[in-house]
Design a protein around this nucleic acid. Sequence first.
RNA 1: GGAGAGGUGGCCGAGUGGUUGAAGGCAGCUGCCUGCUAAGCAGUUGUAGGGUAACCCCCUACCGAGGGUUCGAAUCCCUCCCUCUCCGCCA
Length: 436
Amino acid sequence: MLDLKYLRENLEDVKRRLATRGGVADLSRLKGLDEKRRQIITEVEALKNRRNTVSQEIGRLKKRGESADDLIKEMQEVSQRIKTLDGELEGCERELKEFLLTIPNIPHSSVPEGRDATENRVVRKWGEIRNFTFNPREHTEIGEALGILDFKRAGKIAGARFSLLRGVGALLERALINFMLELHTTRHGYTELLPPFIVNSESMIGTGQLPKFEEDLFKIEGWGHYLVPTAEVPVTNVHRDEILDESLLPLCYTAYTPCFRKEAGSYGKEVKGLIRQHQFNKVELVKFTTPETSYEELEKLTNDAETVLKELGIPYRVVILCTGDMGFSAAKTYDIEVWLPGQGRYVEISSCSNFEDFQARRANIRYRPKGGGKPRFVHTLNGSGLAIGRTVVAILENYQTENGEVVIPEALRQYMGGMERIVREGAGSVSMGQRQ
RNA sequence: GGAGAGGUGGCCGAGUGGUUGAAGGCAGCUGCCUGCUAAGCAGUUGUAGGGUAACCCCCUACCGAGGGUUCGAAUCCCUCCCUCUCCGCCA
């Protein structure tokens, strides 16, 4: 949510900068609503002042046993008028608030202007793309042949866009979660959290998923709660409605959660394999910082996510999203994309953003500056560190051997009982039985 | 799911209709005093919105949330949320 005062004073500039996101936001209603609101406030507060003064006078008169009937009669009318105006004010403020909640964040000045993903810019690349002496296979083929991925049975249990991991496949997923959490807590200074996987609507509004993007979420029928689409939601809302001490900042959290997404509107896109699922695992990084340090912290956070790929030896590139491709709440976003030889393309594995005070204003997260003074909104940041399922894909495709086995990256072996490669085992695979 | 208790300022804790934004205590801040420390004395200390050039000042709102009664509500009534205790159930 943007600051109403800032909008009032910089309306034209904000319009121009939001226009670079595409899907032109119509801010024309704003001025009228804002002026109407302040006009009602002025009137109703004057009346309340009068009521407070006179009510005290009535109390004094009654104590002395004198009549206050005239004043009471007058105040009955004043109270009626106040009630009417309060009603109008509430309507006006609700309209204003609802409107403000639908306006996206203003892109940071360092974000390149552009319409869509084709105008994102590559910032840096890391790692050598492997030269295969054979035709590299996709992860689905590798995984199913090894008996560690089973999409057929996942479809039976839950439907399309779900997966079933088996044996070493499940172990690999679990090892990656442990590896990433340990890396971020012991080497990068994050505190590990294990939050609820179900949240209320206030939390979803706080981080910006609601009210605009309800169709992307799984809502629990009859309860009004939602499955988390990312750990960003519960972890950012940890400090909702709080005033933090500046000495605590930057506050850095890492959390593993499963993520649940409807993926509405992605029909036909990446229907096969682990790339796009209704449920996937992710280790998330979240920071609360002062406004002065948030961009510095964004660079660090992105580096922390990159370290995971460096440790695993998987080639990647970092791109900065252009204005037209950024998410609703972000002021600046770097995507990290891994190289997938089986598909011959880069695929997003992490998205690291600075939201500045956009989420903090929605969720009312503030800090008390050193040496006192008025509370200020913190800046919030987050990034995947990393998406686990896509990391599995990257490992299978980058570390596959010609005979269909997969070498386990060295950094990961201590989390897999010293295992060095994934091979097909008798127990690792059970062919589909006959249907009854 | 059943029965009961409770939600007040940074914290503890008074307050059942009329200068109560809220006693008292703790913590914090500012003076004074005192070899140091500790103690003592006096004062001060919330958030948001509106007015305003203004973080001075004035006004309004806020005692879990939302309604209601009243000239006037932290105080009375209704609904909801949350926490705690006991019972049941349960990983």
